[in-house]
Amino acid sequence: MNEEAEELAGGNASESVLRVGDTVRKPWLENSATVQKYLKALQVAGLDVPKPLGKDHAGRHVTEYVEGVAALDQLPLGQHDLLRVGRLIRQIHDASEGFELPDTTGWNVLLPAENPNLMCHNDLAPWNLIMGERWVFIDWDAAGPSTRLWDLAYAAQSFGGLFEGQPVPEAAARLRAVIDGYGADELLRIALPDTLAKRTAAMHELLKSSHETGFQPWADMYVNGHGVHWHAAAEYVLRNQDAWKRALT
Rank of each mutant, 00 (worst) to 15 (best):
E7W: 05
K245C: 15
A172R: 03
E97S: 10
T213S: 06
P116V: 08
K37W: 03
F137N: 11
D185S: 09
D151S: 06
A9S: 02
S32F: 08
K198T: 14
L39K: 12
K245R: 05
G10Y: 11
P116N: 14
A33P: 13
N108F: 04
D48H: 14
H121L: 06
K55Q: 07
T63N: 07
I138K: 06
D94H: 12
L53V: 10
W140F: 15
I138D: 06
M119K: 07
R87G: 15
G98L: 00
M203H: 15
E100K: 07
G132I: 12
D73I: 09
S146I: 06
G183P: 00
K37C: 10
E235F: 05
L207C: 02
Q91H: 03
D185C: 09
Q36S: 13
D73R: 09
K208R: 10
N240Q: 09
M221Y: 03
R189L: 15
G183M: 08
K245H: 14
I89F: 00
E6L: 10
H211F: 10
E64Y: 08
K245E: 14
V109R: 06
A191S: 10
D56I: 04
N115E: 11
A219E: 03
L192W: 01
R174L: 04
T105K: 03
T104Y: 03
E164A: 08
V49T: 13
T213F: 01
V35D: 01
W135L: 09
E235N: 15
R189W: 10
E164I: 06
L82R: 03
G98H: 00
L39F: 14
V66P: 04
L175R: 02
H211Y: 03
A156K: 08
F163Y: 11
E64P: 06
S96E: 03
S146Q: 09
S209Y: 03
Q241I: 14
I89N: 00
N31H: 13
K37L: 01
S209V: 08
V109L: 13
D22R: 10
G46W: 13
D48C: 15
W107T: 13
M203A: 06
R84T: 12
G10L: 10
A197P: 02
A233E: 00
Y154Q: 04
A219V: 09
P52E: 08
N122L: 09
A45R: 05
L162M: 00
Y154I: 10
N2Y: 11
R19P: 00
E212I: 08
D73C: 12
G225D: 11
H121T: 15
H80D: 08
V62S: 02
W140K: 04
R90K: 13
H57I: 15
L162K: 01
A143L: 12
G225E: 03
K37T: 04
